[in-house]
């Protein structure tokens, strides 16, 4: 009580690097997206087999490996995760040419997925006559798959923006952490597709007993 305390050695400083915030921010955003998709998936699961009129998923969904069918498209989408990983790796090593190559490949694969989805939807709407209002399957399918496609589209726009900036020389290895965050989002979009695919095309497509 009488003596003043000795001066304290300042404690270790916490990292205040802005990019740490960016990582936390993207991670949180992905969590909220998971909550969002989780709800849509819950609704999908809830309504499996509750349709009172057809066409049923078994009549419409084609899970063969044929070109522009869903399995084919999925492979393109999933493999693009590898390309984007390679792109970031090249960027970290300062090889911007390789970065642009892998990044462009990612964009192409993503675009293939979207185009493929477009063809699939065209077939379902025009040939099979399934749309939102047809039955519960239609409502659930277009909502869930549509929102995923919407996220792919958003991701593609950002990827393309980065590609254009890179081609214009505005992206340097200095920006790798920011660009890496874009790849996190892309990995999320791919990852959630695995679940969506399983729910819609496998689990929701089981033969009716």
């Amino acid at each position: 009580m009488t003596t003043a305390p000795a001066a304290l050695a300042p404690p270790e400083a916490l990292p205040q690097d802005g990019i740490v915030n960016g990582k936390i921010g993207i991670a949180c955003m992905i969590i909220s997206e998971i909550a969002f998709f989780g709800t849509l998936i819950a609704a999908y699961l809830f309504y499996i087999g509750r349709d009172i009129n057809g066409p049923y998923p078994q009549d419409v969904l084609d899970v063969s490996i044929a070109p522009l069918k869903v399995l084919f498209n999925s492979i393109f989408l999933l493999i693009s995760s590898v390309w984007i990983w390679l792109a970031i790796r090249s960027m970290r090593r300062g090889r911007m040419g390789a970065f642009v190559f892998w990044w462009a490949l990612t964009v192409l694969c993503g675009a293939e997925f979207l185009v493929g989805t477009g063809f699939e939807w065209y077939g379902m709407i025009v040939d099979d006559g399934v749309w939102m209002g047809t039955n519960l399957f239609g409502s659930c399918f277009y909502t869930l798959v549509g929102f995923h496609a919407f996220h792919v589209t958003m991701g593609l726009l950002v990827l393309t923006l980065v590609l254009v900036l890179a081609l214009l020389g505005h992206v340097t290895p200095r920006n790798v952490e920011k660009v890496d965050l874009v790849s996190w989002y892309w990995h999320f979009v791919d990852g959630i597709w695995i679940i969506v695919f399983f729910v819609v095309y496998i689990f929701g497509n089981m033969p009716v007993s």
């Binding site: 997206e33 909550a35 969002f36 998709f37 939102m132 909502t143």
Partner: peptide
Amino acid sequence: ILVALPPLAAAQILLLFDRQLGAHF
């Protein structure tokens, strides 16, 4: 907020699709 608000947004979208696009949720 992060885990509770997105489900509301999703539910509202389902309702909006019901009302605007004729979905049946």
